[in-house]
Design a protein around this nucleic acid. Structure first.
Lengths: 146, 146
DNA sequence: CCTCCATCGTTGACAACCTCCACGATACCG
DNA sequence: CGGTATCGTGGAGGTTGTCAACGATGGAGG
């Protein structure tokens, strides 16, 4: 027999998750504004920088949890800014690999410092062990749906 | 001396937070669709249900982490659906208290079951102790900025 | 080889959301 | 009484989310 108390919204994980996320996105966005980037663009740029061989837009969408059509615009903007390039792939001419330009790597490096610094305020009450635990839990939430 | 390794995006707490949040919001939204609600409306309705005396829109905005102008629309929609009412406050005639109607309480109760059920999938890999710990951390992230 | 079907990127449309600014009404303080 | 602050509201402009299509390419099977 399960008792169903009306749990306050302040205890609802979904609510807490989206509120905290909004807070962090806001902070990061204003930190990245000086570099002419938004978080989404920064995420794409980061993934492109990490993939030595480049990364397909399909995979970008999958990792970011976005609709592929959103990725198109993000890559368009990054390309216009000269931070990223679309390269043809020999094996499969449908996919276009997104690779970071040297300028892209530079910008991402300096932007990362500001982005990380901006995160320190909201995370100030969490120790390093807790952050690691938080990373682990958030990753599991993501993988739970596939 | 601090070593600055280029941390992968998959370890960035801001990124993990917004991705998990998006996932949960998506799941909850589709669960609430049958009740004619979106998460934001559901959150407002829940807060109105919890506050016996009603709650001001300013406070709603503050708790939800939203701009007050967004709350206006949400309350408008809930009012149109007959789930909530704006009541004048004697003490301060500027503020209008948002209170849930009997119908609002009923809808919120049945909607809550579906919303909670929808959360079970993304949270399936987390035990109850972990969820409690997650609640605590997310709350601290929120309070860290004020 | 040819046909059917899946996948990738892309476009367009539309709703939802966020941010900021401004206004009228009301409250509070001196 | 006058200045200042707060509450709700409205509007503009940009960003994001969702969905349905389309052309181009790839792959499997007859």
């Amino acid at each position: 027999m399960e008792v169903h108390m009306s749990q306050p919204l302040a205890d609802d994980l979904g609510f807490l998750l989206s509120r905290a996320s909004g807070q962090v996105v806001r902070a990061t966005n204003s930190a990245l504004a000086g570099h002419g980037l938004r978080v989404r663009q920064y995420s794409v740029l980061t993934l492109a920088c990490q993939a030595a061989e480049g990364i397909s837009q399909r995979e970008l969408a999958s990792v970011l949890g976005l609709d592929p059509s959103q990725v198109v615009l993000l890559v368009d903007e990054l390309t216009a800014a000269g931070l990223v390039e679309r390269q043809a792939q020999e094996a499969d001419r449908r996919t276009r690999l997104v690779v970071a330009t040297p300028e892209g790597h530079r910008v991402r490096e300096t932007a990362r410092e500001d982005a990380d610094a901006a995160m320190e305020t909201p995370l100030s009450l969490l120790g390093e062990a807790e952050r690691e635990r938080l990373r682990d839990m958030l990753t599991r939430i993501w993988t739970a749906t596939g």
